[in-house]
Structures are given as structure tokens and as C-alpha cells.
Design a protein around this nucleic acid. Sequence first.
DNA 1: TTCATGCTTCGACCATCACCGAAACATCCG
DNA 2: CGGATGTTTCGGTGATGGTCGAAGCATGAA
Lengths: 227, 227
Amino acid sequence: MKDGPDIARVAALIGDPARANMLTALMTGQALTATELAAEAGVTPQTASSHLAQLEAGGLVRPRRQGRHKYVSLAGEEVAAVLEGLMGLAAGTGQLRTRVGPRDAALRTARVCYNHLAGEMGVWLYDALLEQGYLLAGAERPELTEAGAAFAGRFGVDLEALRGRRSPLCLDCLDWSMRRTHLAGSLGRALLARILEQGWARREAGSRAVLFSASGEAALREAVLRE
Amino acid sequence: MKDGPDIARVAALIGDPARANMLTALMTGQALTATELAAEAGVTPQTASSHLAQLEAGGLVRPRRQGRHKYVSLAGEEVAAVLEGLMGLAAGTGQLRTRVGPRDAALRTARVCYNHLAGEMGVWLYDALLEQGYLLAGAERPELTEAGAAFAGRFGVDLEALRGRRSPLCLDCLDWSMRRTHLAGSLGRALLARILEQGWARREAGSRAVLFSASGEAALREAVLRE
DNA sequence: TTCATGCTTCGACCATCACCGAAACATCCG
DNA sequence: CGGATGTTTCGGTGATGGTCGAAGCATGAA
């Protein structure tokens, strides 16, 4: 039966190890050049070029030319969410590729998921926002309450600017390590940006890890939990 | 470079058209037999068997043998969520195939499966017991909770008598019209017995059909959902 | 301009894997 | 018991697609 949605085509794109490595590398949210991605995937630039062409045609990544460089980033949050979901499935079947180490622990604690916060801290933040009544879950997408809008203001997020964009304000994203939902969308991205701006946490170069300082973590909890 | 689980393995599983068609067919939540899935995928049973073995090894589907048939269903909600996400990524979201099950409407609605309730009502009852927290699924056999025991008492079931017997209290049984799980075991039998005793439904002579009256159906829903 | 760097296209090689025929195995029915 | 149906294993074939070398653009620097 040849009909049906082209789920196979998209999945086959992700299904190649070289392309999967590229996409995983792009989960940091950074835009990488074609040669950098070739190195990540462990293939020659020729091969990487072919892969990137396919990923573009499949709508998974978005290229941006700058001079003679070609910067590539994930096409959007939906792509990141699907990749995160796939990681959850892979982790669930015990097919971890990396042996557990200190770096893994850091990733589990807090990491970047495309452009928002994931890991234990991400899940905690999501749950806390729900508990404080700032966020309403249950529907197709989470919804920000009035109290939540006020909170965002206190947090230093310019909601009006975010609402003007096309991308949705709030989105659910599934965490592969926690198997729980955390907050994506432009609000999720803005919250992470503020956390970094405040110096509560910093990003490890070339990694998805987000390193909170002890005082930074306390400050975040304080900011979210205060009534 | 290599952080996170190996998504290529899982994605490659979904990436084959035949397997993708199988998974898409399973998105209804129904369990399908191996030959039915072969037809869905448009391949021979031999090929389908190979695909199913891979999907099982990858943890995407869960098999269940009943007689000489092999019923296969999705391994869990996470799998369905990922498939849903992939469908969203696919540009032209295709249509879902709708399979028509049994011919007799009455049998499909409610019937006797050996000694317990099957059909739409049977599946509804099973789901409702889960949702109310009366039943715990997921293990080898469903388990009755304390609240479930209390419910059984209110329902008029003598649990002590049932527990004395050798036959298991709770058993999963696969519905041939819904292709979903419903409750068998001595408790399943006792529940059906009480339903008939209360006059909520009656059996049609010489048939497996169980005919609920409108008030009887309402009474059953009331009894299960109250609180 | 000439050279260097980054990316893409072309061509060919080759491993992987889906596919099916045949046959074995398992289960149910009469 | 034998016959029918559903599922699995095995062996061999064929095709899709990843891979790289070599060469062809494109951009930036000297």
C-alpha cells in the first residue's frame, strides 16, 4: 500500500546515523557550518553536503548563507520536539549510545533543548509554573494565565514582543531523560534567555549542558515560587 | 559530539515505508494481527514477520499471542506521540485509514466473551476502571486496588469468594471487534453477572449479544463513575 | 589577477536491507 | 488423526542509498 502520510520519508531522513548526528549536534540551538556538521557526523564534506540537501528538502533544517559559509540550524521547535521524543524512545529501550559519565549527569540536570530549558530544571520549572497558576495545561497547548503574564513581566520578559511573532508562545516539549513535559515556545526560549542574562546559569561551549550556580538555582526558585 | 541516545536506530525503524504503514495502522489504538499488518504494509506475511521482529526489538510495538494469532499494538503513548509529531512534520499530512470491524452492530456494542463482557461496553468498562483508579494495568496481569475492592463491594461482588478460587481474579482479554483490551478473569465474570442480575442488560437467546436497556446503560455508567 | 577556502556536483563503488519463494513450525478444527 | 490457517525461518536476489575521489563553482583575501 503506497498511500499514507510521508512519515516514512521524514523518519528515514532522521534514520541515517550521519544525519542523526548532525541533527543531534543542532539540538544545541546553535547554527553550525556545513564543514562543522561534517565533522560532527564523521563524514567528508561531500557526503555532508548531500545529507544537508536532503534535510533541507525534508524541511528539517534551515540554511543561511553568510559569505562563503553555510550556516545550518533546525527548522523549528516542532523538529526539536520530535527529536527529543525520539531520544526518549531510544533511551527507554536502553539503547544509550554514551556510557554514563559526569557529562551525562550534567545533561540530565539541565540542558538546552533547541532554545529552551530541558532536563530536571526544565521539568521543575514547568511544574512550578503550573503549580503557581501561571500556566494552564491540558489543552492542545499550554496557556499563560493573567498571573502568569504578570510573572513574566517580573521575570523580565517582554510578552508583547513575543506575542507579535508567528511562533506560538507556549508549547509542550517532551524530555527524553525525565520523560516529562517541559516548556518550549517563544516563552520557553525567553525564560532561558533571562536565566542566562541574570548569570544564574551559563552554557558550556559546544555542549547542550546548562550549568547553574548554586546561587543562581536558588535565585530561579525564589523568582518563580514567590507569591 | 555524541551526547544523547541513539535516535538513528529508532528513526530508521520508522523510516521504512512498510513499517511506517504498520505503525500508522496501529495509531488507531487497536491491536492488529501480523497478517493484517502485512496487508496494511502491502508486503507478504514473511516480510511482515521480519519487520515486526525489528519493531519489537526496537521497543516500538508490543506483541501478544492469542492462539495462533499474533496481535500487535503500539508499545505506549510515547510512541504514538512521536508518530504524531512525525506526521506533523510531514508536509502533506495524509489521511488515516478507517477500518470497519464487525458486521453485526449489536455484537459490536456488547457481547459475551466466554463469560465476561466484551465489545464497546466491555472496553469502556475496562478503561473506566483504569481511569477511576480501581484497576492497575501495565503489569503481567491487571491488579485491583483498594479503591477497586471497595467499588466491587458496592457493585455487589463478593471478592472473598472470588479470591478463594484458583482462577485469577483479573485477566486481560483482547476484543476481536475493538481490538482493545477488556477485563476477563473471575472479576470480569462477576461484573457481568451483576449487570445481568440488576436487569441492566439481558442476553439474547442463542447469541452472544448482550442487550443493554437505555436505563441499564446509564445505571452502569453511574455505578462506575460516581464519586 | 591569482591563490585559498568552503561548498556543491558528478561518477562509480559497494554494503545494507527489503523482498519473496519454499518450507518448517504452531495452533485450531473436524 | 489429517487438513486448514497463521506465523516464522532460511536462502538468494535485487535495488536503494551512503560513501568518497575528482573536479567544478562561488566567495574572500592578497
